[in-house]
Design a binder for these strands. Structure first.
Length: 838
RNA sequence: GCCGAGGUGGCGAAACGGCAGACGCGGCGGACUUAAAAUCCGCUGGGGCACCGCCCCGUGUGGGUUCAAAUCCCACCCUCGGCACCA
């Protein structure tokens, strides 16, 4: 017997779950087999109807489908089905993000090969995914760990390389000691590894990068999108972090080193007369060169200490400023003043030039530093009402320049322009734009990923593998080390190769690609997943792309979504694609929790959907998840809550199957007929518009009301057989995208030919949906005092007259004088505004 | 610290300038039953009364705009996400 943890007590399903009465255990497999057999979800490419490409983020095959997957997939399937019923040819594919570290960890821990582990998981998950009853066309499944897919990762890498968008360089990289690999900056969260939460360290090594920064400016342009959440756009904008300013050189020509100046970047060129020191990041290459012999020991100790500190320590905002004087000076190009040079870890090496001009009066960080080291704090931008006294904190706002040579007296905004112009004229600086975003580090020192198709030859150096030799296969006979080192490092058969240029012995690159490379273009592969000649069929890409609607979790805001946008723009510039944005509309569903906590294996509170599906049916689980609340907000899984879904479907099963012939011989009552017809059309309108906008919860509540209306009509027995049949038929059609199996069964049992899922969604008539009588709301001074049933087309004058006559309103008017009567057209509301009687 | 989203019954929520709490969960009462489950019916924001109805209060807090505010504006408090020494 299946047990479920309900907080304190453990309860059996038998005791808490309402029994479904439509036998989902029988009808769901029956219809799934029938759909399969009829090829109902096969998506032909030559369908002339308008296309709709609706995609859900593909899952990582971790082993079992959990309720979070269902929450992502069931509602998006309902939406895709709705689009299909609206008359689109819909592509709603599914695949597996099959490369990644968990497979390798399983190999190290349990001795099972990543390939076996992954393929077993995929097989299990495919079965579970089928149980959702979604319209996935499984002939289009994409599996990124198969050579037929990753071959094209390698091919794309070569195209990027050819176009100077992939390069290799030695750079300090973020290293996760637990995952034993470098990470992209995007994969670091608060100084910890995004995947395993281990504090990261830094390592200098040869790495492969993709030149995403070349597209920084275009990636900031979101105008090609139709509908994206504003917060995702904001997060991307912040991530890219564009700053406009001026890069200026502070001369060090007198020090006799090779470099003639230290370049700094500033957004506040207007404060340059207030510079009283210069700060270089500890990793700045000029630090050793500009250190005097007597300072060397101290500086080296500081730099070494900074290097050893973890990012978490270095990043903490509240710590006191530290730093060391190098013993040398540079020259301020604007006023010729001598400026002492420090190194301090509040300057970060990778941003802009890695050097900061210290303007303590106008930057709080510089102010703190200057105070600590007793440096002068000259004011060059007067704060409002400034009395000439020393500042107690930095003034970072605008103002009028003082003590700034020829620029004195200018407002800061104007001074910025004038001083930038001056710097450019004098050749001491230039306007510059810098970005926070850095190039995308794609190499991983792991086995279970796409091998980077490059060989190293002693004679020819680094040589890309020719396209005809792809794929570079990942060897399956790998030995996994408990140390976590990549088996590729020791695999002779993989390592030894010959140089494609000179045919002499050469060595293969052992790094593999970040799995985000796989997901940066998988939406292109779905259109021709088995093409062996090219990554995608350009004809079909023209026919299907871009993706019209993408849905998935918000956790991919900056990584996957930004990388995909970059890929599409880069491939467009190579002439391989005809569009600039991969995903026109984006919708982020919320997170499903259990007992108020995020589900996770470590907490042991992961809700497995399978027992519920087996017992209550996929339709029930679908309905419950969609009814829970707004999709974007997520919600808490509750065992008692799902009973609401079962009860409703039981009622639907019971009521929709009542034959019109058994309606009872009562004479037809026109008012009853009109009432049911009106409810029907109101429901169609509501469900249509709600499904259109992912508002599943209110769509279902409308269908629940409609079910009750049908039930009432049945009990009255006076609506007529024809209307009863029409109402039931349209009710089933509205149910079809939400609960596809029970809808199909009802469709058959009510005498309709297969299949309900090839039918158009019902349309409503505004005239029939319009109410005949409405409630006239009578307010006195904004408070509701009476409600009167009136004809919907009651003229304004009549409404006002009725309102003033209302006994309840009259009572309120006692001793007061009517000042004004407000009528709200289209609302049937009258507000009587009064003043005290004289 | 900065940016964004959000605070509505016992709970999930709906309404997004015009009847606050639709729909559902839970609870209470009733019908059916030997009994229980299931099902069906009724009630369910708080308080008051001269209780078949009516009145007062009520959408995080305080102000404002409006004939009318959960909804718009300002300030503050709290919760959740993102960024965080970015020059």
């Amino acid at each position: 017997m299946v047990e479920v943890d309900m907080g304190q007590e453990r309860v059996t399903f038998e005791r808490v779950l309402v029994e479904p009465r439509w036998n989902p255990q029988a009808i769901e497999p029956k219809w799934q087999a029938r759909w399969e057999e009829a090829g109902l979800h096969r998506v032909p490419d030559d369908d002339p109807r308008p296309k709709w490409y609706e995609m859900t983020m593909y899952p990582y095959p971790s082993g079992d489908l959990h309720i979070g997957h269902w929450y992502a997939m069931a509602p998006s399937d309902a939406h895709a089905r709705f689009r299909r019923m609206q008359g689109y040819r819909v592509l709603h594919p599914m695949g597996f993000d099959a490369f990644g570290l968990p497979a390798e960890n399983a190999a190290i821990r349990h001795g099972i090969h990543p390939f076996t582990w992954t393929m077993n998981n995929i097989e299990r998950m495919r079965k579970q995914l089928r149980s959702i009853g979604a319209i996935y066309d499984w002939t289009r499944e994409v599996n990124t760990c198969l050579p037929e897919y990753y071959k094209w990762n390698q091919w794309l890498f070569l195209q990027f390389y050819k176009h100077d968008l992939a390069y290799r360089t030695r750079a300090p990289a973020v290293w996760c000691p637990s995952c034993q690999t470098v990470l992209a900056n995007e994969q670091v969260v608060n100084g910890r590894c995004e995947r395993c939460d281990t504090p990261i360290t830094r390592r200098e090594m040869e790495q492969w990068f993709l030149r995403i920064t070349k597209y920084a400016e275009e990636l900031l342009d979101f105008s090609g999108l139709i509908d994206w959440p504003e917060r995702i756009i904001t997060m991307q904008r912040n991530w890219i972090g564009r700053s406009e300013g001026v890069e200026v050189g502070f001369s060090i020509a007198h020090l006799g080193v090779q470099e003639k100046e230290v370049r700094v970047f500033t957004t506040r060129i207007d404060t340059i007369y207030g510079v009283s020191f210069l700060v270089l990041a500890p990793e700045h290459p000029l630090v050793p060169k500009l250190t005097t012999p007597e300072r060397r020991a101290q500086v080296e100790a500081y730099v070494e200490n900074a290097r050893r500190q973890s990012d978490i320590e270095r990043l903490s905002t509240e710590r006191e400023k530290t730093g060391v004087f190098l013993g040398t000076y540079c020259v301020n190009p604007f006023n010729g003043e001598r400026v002492p040079i420090f190194t301090a870890d509040y300057a970060v090496a990778w941003y802009a030039t890695g050097a900061v001009m210290g303007v303590p009066a106008h930057d709080q960080r510089d102010f703190d530093f200057a105070q600590k080291f007793g440096l002068p704090i000259p004011v060059v931008v007067a704060p409002p009402g400034w009395d000439g006294q020393p500042l107690t904190q930095a003034w970072e706002g605008p103002g009028v320049l003082v003590n700034s040579g020829p620029f004195t007296g200018m407002p800061s905004q104007q001074a910025k322009t004038a001083m930038a112009d001056y710097a450019e004229r004098q050749g001491i600086g230039r306007r510059a734009v810098v970005y926070r975003m850095r190039d995308w580090l794609i190499s991983r020192q792991r086995y279970w990923g796409t091998p980077i198709p490059v060989v190293y030859c002693d004679a020819c150096g680094m040589v890309p593998v020719p396209e005809k030799d792809l794929p570079v296969l990942l060897p399956l006979d790998a030995q996994f080390k408990p140390t976590g080192e990549s088996p590729l490092l020791y695999h002779e058969g993989f390592l030894r190769t010959t140089c494609p240029q000179c045919a002499r012995p050469a060595r293969r690159e052992t790094d593999t690609m970040d799995t985000f490379v796989d997901s940066s273009w998988y939406f292109l592969r779905y259109v021709s997943p088995h093409d062996t000649q090219r990554p995608w069929d350009p004809e079909l890409v023209l026919r299907w792309l871009p993706v019209d609607q993408y849905t998935g979790g918000a956790e991919h805001a900056v990584m996957h979504l930004l990388y995909s946008r970059f890929f599409v723009k880069a491939l467009r510039d190579m002439g391989l694609l005809h569009f600039s944005e991969p995903f026109l509309r984006l919708y982020n569903q919320g997170v499903i929790t259990y007992l108020g906590e995020k589900m996770s294996k470590s907490r042991g509170n992961v809700v497995p959907p399978d027992p519920y599906v087996q017992r209550l049916g996929a339709d029930t689980v679908r309905v419950y998840l969609m009814f829970l609340g707004p999709w974007e907000k997520g919600g808490d899984w509750s065992v008692s809550g799902i009973n609401g879904a079962t009860r409703w479907l039981n009622r639907v099963w019971e009521v929709f199957r009542r034959p019109s012939s058994a309606l009872g011989g009562k004479p037809v009552n026109e008012a009853s007929r009109r009432a049911l017809l009106r409810k029907l059309h109101q429901t169609i309108k509501k469900v249509y518009n709600d499904l259109d906008r992912f508002q599943f919860n209110t769509a279902i509540s409308a269908l629940m009301e409609f079910t009750s209306a049908l039930q009432d009509a049945w009990e009255r027995g006076d609506v007529g057989a024809d209307l009863w049949e029409e109402a039931v038929e349209k009710g089933i059609l509205m149910l079809a995208p939400i609960a596809p199996h029970i809808a199909e069964e009802l469709w058959e049992q009510t005498g309709h030919p297969f299949s309900v899922h090839t039918q158009p969604f019902p349309r409503w008539s505004e005239a029939l949906a319009a109410a005949e009588t409405v409630t006239l709301v009578v307010q006195v001074d904004g408070k509701v005092r009476d409600r009167i049933e009136v004809p919907a087309d009651l003229p304004e004058e009549e409404a006002k007259r009725l309102a003033l006559q209302s006994a309840n309103a009259q009572r309120q008017l006692n001793g007061r004088k009517v000042q004004r009567v407000v009528f709200v057209p289209g609302r049937m509301l009258v507000n009587i505004v009064t003043v005290p009687a004289p």
